[in-house]
Simulated scan of single mutants.
Amino acid sequence: MTADLPCVLFVDDEERILRSLRMLFRGRFEILTTTSGREAIDWVKRRPVHVIVSDQRMPEMSGVAVLREVAEHSPSTMRILLTGYADMDAVTDSVNEGEIFRFVEKPWNGVALVDSVAEAAGIAMSEFAAASRSAIPRDARAKSAEGGISFNAIAARVVVLDESGDLVALVRDLLPTAVHVAHATSLEAALDILAEKDVAMVVAQLASANGDVADSLKQLKRLRPATLSVVVSPLRDSRLVIGLINEGQIFRFLLNPPPRELLRRGLIAGLERHAEMRVASNLLRRHAVEAPRAEAATMPGRLLQAWRRLREAAITRIA
């Protein structure tokens, strides 16, 4: 009966939580449960697992550590972190190391959790099917952070939104000289560049949780899913980062000042991922975002004009 159902693996050190999840998802998916992160990783190594939903705080190993190893062994498995403790380190590690699809807090909303898992399962099933038709499995892709660069550096374009100029100088120092790095000192200028050029990555300095930049990164992901975002901020605000993960699918979040090596690895990995998506368009589904939970603030007229130009440019490219 379960042969045609997507497989979902739940990892939590509390049996009562696993019982609740089995009841919630019964009949919809093939369900695997374990209280051991190591057993979860062994399962992923042995058989297809479309979605893994892991708790963060477990005695043997953290949920982020589990999801990080799952990503290494089965990158097509969609990863969701489910936790009652939204501490800043866990949130940032979940995006930087686990590259999660969603961050879900306990107590969860049953309908929303089922919808997120179902969306993730559909994406994973298409990726597993594509990988089975391909001669080169997705998990065999080059790891340029440790070796040679696999993206086309000459074609790559990065926009750095940075008022001071310090961040753009660092990005230029870390990337190959063939990568075109554009400097935008305002959000409006960044949107104008995005309207005119095919941009692989936006590196944004985020100084305020309530400003237009965070909302714009979320809107940009809905409009341009192949454009990845790296956020650099001094704000230790876990709610902000959770929103950027779920509603903006940011690729990395680094506290300011960003460690050079972490930023370098994030930039190279992001350019590789963008190149991957240009070749395999089915991977764009992995960057689907949640609908905004709060109504966006009214934007100034100058930003509305910039967004209008960006949307018109997107329609022109599709046509």
Rank of each mutant, 00 (worst) to 15 (best):
D192Y: 05
R302K: 13
S20R: 02
V199T: 15
S134T: 03
T92S: 10
I250G: 01
A296V: 00
L21Y: 10
I245G: 00
P292M: 10
D4H: 15
L217F: 03
A190L: 14
A226W: 04
C7I: 10
S76G: 14
F253A: 05
L283V: 01
A153L: 10
T316R: 15
V91R: 02
L228D: 11
R133T: 12
T34F: 11
A294W: 04
F128V: 11
A153N: 08
K218V: 12
A200Y: 05
F253D: 01
L283E: 11
T83M: 00
P300R: 15
L24M: 14
A200I: 04
G165V: 13
R293W: 09
G98K: 04
R28T: 07
R79T: 05
S238M: 00
G248R: 10
E295W: 07
S238P: 04
G98P: 04
N246P: 03
F251L: 08
V160T: 08
G122N: 12
I315A: 15
T316Y: 13
A288V: 14
R26W: 03
N256V: 03
R68E: 15
S20G: 15
I315D: 15
V199Y: 13
T77V: 12
H274S: 15
S54Y: 04
T77R: 09
V168R: 05
F103M: 01
A190I: 10
A280M: 07
V51H: 06
Q305S: 14
D198Q: 15
A313F: 09
E119P: 04
V159D: 04
R264H: 15
I41G: 07
S229P: 01
G27A: 14
L81D: 01
N109Q: 14
D55S: 13
R311N: 09
P107G: 10
L18N: 01
V171P: 07
P292V: 11
D13Q: 03
N152L: 11
K197P: 04
M78L: 11
L255F: 06
P176Y: 02
A145T: 13
K106Y: 03
L161T: 04
P300K: 13
L267I: 12
Y85R: 01
S238D: 13
